[in-house]
Measured scan of single mutants.
Amino acid sequence: MEVRTIKVFTTVDNINLHTQVVDMSMTYGQQFGPTYLDGADVTKIKPHNSHEGKTFYVLPNDDTLRVEAFEYYHTTDPSFLGRYMSALNHTKKWKYPQVNGLTSIKWADNNCYLATALLTLQQIELKFNPPALQDAYYRARAGEAANFCALILAYCNKTVGELGDVRETMSYLFQHANLDSCKRVLNVVCKTCGQQQTTLKGVEAVMYMGTLSYEQFKKGVQIPCTCGKQATKYLVQQESPFVMMSAPPAQYELKHGTFTCASEYTGNYQCGHYKHITSKETLYCIDGALLTKSSEYKGPITDVFYKENSYTTTIK
């Protein structure tokens, strides 16, 4: 009895394709271990004539594949690729409408935090270190965002349907971005203890939790000093293409032309909904596939993004 075979390709990165001759009487799992086709788990399936010449994702289970996976995804987590594939199996079914010149995501599976993050990423200057993220990001900007969303979920250790947080998501993504040249110098002034300067680099240099107003941050924000008295913390120097200011959701007025974009969060910790506000020729609110415009805006804002380049204080 002759062994019926077909020729397929296996890959971990969709760049390096490895030619395989597979036995049609055995499952993919018996031949390769966990195997995925377009995100779908085909591990328990036997090869079919229609699979001839198709590319299958496999887990990096030998040295060659491990090197290829690390170079593309910059992670050695053995569960990463499987999590990416199972997320992709959902995100490829989502709709990605162009809204006001940006790629958004039609609401499904509690994905409003991903839509808000995706919209924000198209408006701030950011370059990702893992080629996987950078490639998928370019495709997302062009309207094909399924891979990018699935990668975000995998890097953030999230599953489809789980509630997510924009600030946490951005923080994970910033860790995989090139923020080497970003720098922030802060000064804390206390009447009792004097003053202390701190220099922050990388992710810490672009994120701040405690106030939404970048102007206020430049002037000074009140913080408790270690001595128990009130101290003032203010920005001395900022070198970065953008800054992200966050605070627990509270009524906040966004003035046209003073910011790049913002995240609105309605609801409580267990259950809520994100919308995205962007400042173009007027203010726009993007909620999944829905767009509304207004000249002014007041609502429960939790993150505001500002364009920056270089700032030095005039406070002496």
Score class of each variant (00 low, 15 high):
G267Y: 12
L126F: 15
K95E: 15
R83L: 09
K201R: 15
G288P: 05
A247P: 04
T282W: 04
D303L: 08
K7P: 09
F259R: 03
H74S: 01
G299S: 03
T292S: 09
K298Q: 14
L200Y: 12
K219Q: 08
C182T: 03
S181A: 15
A250G: 10
L37R: 13
K46H: 08
Q98Y: 14
Q31P: 06
T169P: 02
G288K: 08
T313P: 07
L114Q: 09
P249Y: 01
E253F: 12
A150R: 02
K183F: 10
E204M: 08
A136D: 04
H256P: 15
R139H: 10
G164W: 03
F148G: 04
D135C: 08
K106G: 09
A136M: 07
Y214D: 02
E239A: 08
E125K: 07
T266M: 11
P78Y: 10
L290A: 13
C285A: 11
T314P: 09
A177D: 00
L102A: 08
D77M: 03
H48N: 13
D62C: 14
K44H: 12
T199G: 04
L173K: 04
S246Q: 07
N100P: 05
E264C: 10
D63V: 07
F174R: 01
I277Y: 00
C285E: 15
Y269P: 15
I124W: 04
G161N: 06
K218G: 02
A40I: 12
E253P: 09
Q196A: 10
L254A: 05
Q195G: 07
G33Q: 02
R139F: 09
P248M: 12
M245K: 01
Y172F: 12
D23V: 12
T314Q: 15
E68G: 02
N110H: 02
T266Y: 05
E281P: 09
E308Q: 08
G29K: 10
I152S: 02
I105H: 02
T10P: 10
Y311P: 14
E296L: 11
L151N: 01
L283Y: 01
K316V: 15
S263T: 11
P249T: 08
P249H: 04
D303P: 03
N110V: 03
V99L: 13
Q98A: 14
D23N: 11
P47H: 08
T103N: 05
N61W: 11
Y306C: 01
D135T: 08
V189P: 08
E253S: 11
N111K: 00
Y311H: 07
Q122E: 05
Y214M: 01
G299R: 06
L153C: 04
I6E: 01
A140F: 04
L186F: 12
Q237C: 11
P241V: 01
K218H: 01
P131E: 14
L235T: 01
L173G: 04
L102C: 05
K255S: 06
C225W: 00
G33R: 07
E52M: 11
P249D: 06
V243A: 02
I286H: 00
V3C: 14
T19Q: 08
N89W: 12
T64L: 10
I124S: 04
H273E: 00
T75K: 09
G161C: 07
T35D: 15
P34Y: 12
A289T: 07
E144T: 07
V160M: 00
Y274D: 04
A262T: 01
L126A: 04
D38L: 10
G299M: 04
Q216C: 07
D41Y: 07
Y72W: 06
S171W: 15
N89M: 15
Y138H: 13
D109P: 09
Y252A: 10
N14S: 12
S50Y: 11
L212G: 05
Y57R: 03
H276S: 09
S181Y: 09
M207V: 07
L133F: 00
T64V: 12
S104Y: 09
Y138M: 14
L126G: 08
Y274P: 00
T312F: 11
F174A: 06
F9V: 11
K127I: 11
K93L: 11
G210K: 01
H90N: 09
K298T: 13
E71V: 02
V67R: 14
T226S: 15
T27Y: 09
S181F: 08
L37A: 12
M85C: 07
M85P: 11
T55V: 11
L119T: 03
S310K: 15
P97N: 03
R167S: 04
E162L: 04
D287T: 05
A69H: 14
E239Q: 11
Y214R: 03
G210C: 08
N309R: 13
G210Q: 07
V21S: 12
A132W: 02
Y265F: 15
V236E: 07
H48F: 13
T76M: 14
I124R: 04
Q270F: 13
K158A: 09
T10W: 15
S295E: 11
I152E: 10
L153I: 09
Q134E: 10
T211E: 13
Q20M: 14
T278M: 12
V166N: 04
H256I: 15
G101E: 10
Q98G: 08
P34F: 15
E125P: 12
P34G: 07
G272E: 00
Q251V: 10
P224Y: 09
D180A: 08
L133P: 03
G210T: 01
C227L: 02
G29Y: 05
T199R: 09
Q238L: 01
T11I: 15
T232H: 04
T313V: 12
E2P: 11
K255C: 05
Y96K: 06
V3L: 14
N157E: 04
L118E: 07
G257F: 03
A289C: 11
E308T: 12
Y96A: 01
M24H: 09
C225T: 00
T278I: 08
D287V: 01
E168Q: 15
G257I: 03
I6W: 05
V203T: 08
C225V: 03
L173M: 15
T91V: 09
Y274L: 05
V189M: 08
M85Q: 09
I105F: 02
G194W: 03
A154H: 03
L121W: 04
H74M: 10
F70E: 07
K158F: 03
S171Y: 15
I301G: 00
E52N: 12
L65V: 11
T198D: 07
F148I: 06
A150H: 04
A117E: 04
L200H: 12
L235S: 02
G82S: 14
G228V: 00
T282F: 07
G29R: 09
T76E: 08
F32I: 13
N178I: 05
E168H: 15
P300S: 12
R141V: 11
P241L: 04
T211L: 07
Y297M: 04
K127D: 05
L186T: 14
D41A: 13
V99K: 09
E308R: 04
E2R: 12
E296R: 09
C190M: 01
T159I: 09
Y155K: 03
S263V: 15
D38N: 11
I152C: 03
Y84L: 10
N110C: 01
H256G: 08
Y73M: 05
T5V: 12
K229E: 15
I277V: 11
V185H: 02
M245I: 02
N14F: 06
D63K: 08
C156P: 01
L88H: 00
R66S: 10
N309P: 13
G33N: 03
E168W: 09
G194T: 03
E296I: 08
T192F: 07
Q196W: 10
H90P: 03
N14V: 02
H176M: 10
Y36A: 06
Y234F: 06
T198C: 08
Q175M: 06
P131D: 00
P249L: 01
I315Y: 15
H176C: 06
P130N: 01
S279P: 06
D38V: 09
E308N: 05
G82A: 15
A117D: 03
K201G: 08
S171E: 10
D165T: 09
V243K: 05
V8I: 12
M26N: 13
C112P: 02
V8P: 02
L151F: 05
T43S: 12
N16K: 09
N157Y: 12
T258V: 04
H90F: 12
R4Q: 07
H51N: 09
Y172V: 14
K255L: 11
V203W: 12
D77F: 08
L121Q: 03
P241T: 06
I286N: 05
D165S: 15
L102D: 02
G299V: 05
S310D: 11
R167P: 00
Y269T: 15
D77I: 02
G29I: 02
A142K: 14
V185P: 02
T75S: 14
A108P: 00
S50D: 13
A87G: 02
M209S: 14
H256W: 11
V188M: 09
F305C: 00
T19R: 13
Y113C: 09
I15L: 12
K191L: 11
G82I: 14
A136F: 06
L254W: 00
Y297L: 00
P131N: 01
K298V: 13
E253W: 04
Q216F: 03
C225R: 03
